[in-house]
């Protein structure tokens, strides 16, 4: 690479990376800094360095309970996404061919690229007491049923699964599609039936995609706050809403920053644990 080329590459790269620095990397650093302050350092406010925010975030039983609750929520949403998404990806990748596969695949992925907030809102309409689902069920069943799903953990799980299911389908689909057909044929020629082929070949070969999908679901769900607010109502207090409150209601930014950083640490641990599989899935 000559000097001129080096300069040209630098010129092409600089704007994008400067932008990312200003908009993402500096803010994350600023947040790290803030999380050790007693108060925001704006104007003539008094501030000092402290570990109190972390102490508070880690020792306050309410915060710990909420973090645990968010982790559990993310766990169950991930489980449901994997359980529902894997067969769907399998059918799309290995049982349907040609044009109809393209169309169906797009149909499955499309909601994921449409407005998340609006989709959660649409569930609110469906699930609300005496709402569409209640009536539909009552129209079918002879006795009176009160589902009352709205403002429950179930509603939160349904809405979040709806939001993130396409992730799992997408990543799993990609790794399932990469499986060579003749490998399956070879297993059949050796006498293996479908359950064994599924267990010994398809699942292990799809695992990088499944793990990638699971991480892509788990990470944002731990930090979700909009879905729990809209679908969980009073039970919808999560670690995410706790952080939201620090910034938009309580205005305790340093505590919010510390809580955010603990969440980030959790996320990083998960990403690190899954990174071998993620690397495999992207190559």
């Amino acid at each position: 690479m000559t000097g001129a080329e080096r300069l040209r590459a630098l010129g092409l790269l600089a704007p994008a990376y400067l932008w990312l620095t200003v908009a993402v990397f500096l803010p994350l650093s600023a947040m790290a800094f803030f999380s050790f302050l007693t108060d925001v350092p704006f104007g003539d406010r008094e501030w000092a360095f402290t570990f109190d925010n972390y102490a508070q975030a880690l020792t306050n039983p309410t915060y710990a309970t909420l973090l645990w609750k968010s982790l559990k929520l993310a766990f169950w949403v991930t489980v449901w996404c994997v359980v529902l998404g894997f067969p769907c990806a399998y059918i799309l990748a290995r049982m349907i061919k040609g044009r109809s596969r393209e169309v169906l695949f797009l149909l499955v992925i499309l909601p994921f690229w449409s407005n998340a907030l609006v989709r959660v809102f649409s569930w609110a309409i469906v699930l609300r007491g005496n709402g569409v689902l209640d009536r539909a069920v009552n129209a079918v069943l002879p006795w009176d049923v009160k589902l009352n799903l709205m403002f429950s953990e179930t509603a939160m799980v349904i809405g979040l699964v709806h939001s993130y299911l396409p992730y799992v389908i997408l990543t799993t689909y990609l790794s399932l599609q990469a499986i060579d057909d003749t490998v399956i044929e070879a297993a059949r020629s050796l006498g293996a039936r479908f359950p064994r082929i599924l267990w010994r070949l398809i699942l292990p070969l799809a695992m990088p995609g499944l793990i990638a999908g699971a991480v892509l679901v788990f990470v944002p769900v731990v930090g979700s706050f909009m879905e729990p607010r809209l679908l969980g109502g009073r039970v919808g207090t999560t670690y995410g809403t706790l952080i939201e409150d620090q910034f938009v209601a309580v205005f305790n930014w340093p505590l919010g920053a510390a809580l955010s950083f603990i969440l980030l640490a959790v996320v990083l641990v998960i990403l690190a644990a899954a990174s071998p599989a993620l690397r495999k899935a992207t190559t």
Binding site: V24, P27, L28, A30, F34, P220, W253
Partner: peptide
């Protein structure tokens, strides 16, 4: 990071920094 870090964290970090 912009894709993988939850938007809640990115968003609040931007808020802090842009204010600062």
């Amino acid at each position: 990071p912009p894709i993988a870090v939850p938007w809640l964290i990115t968003g609040t970090a931007m808020l802090i920094f842009f204010f600062g």
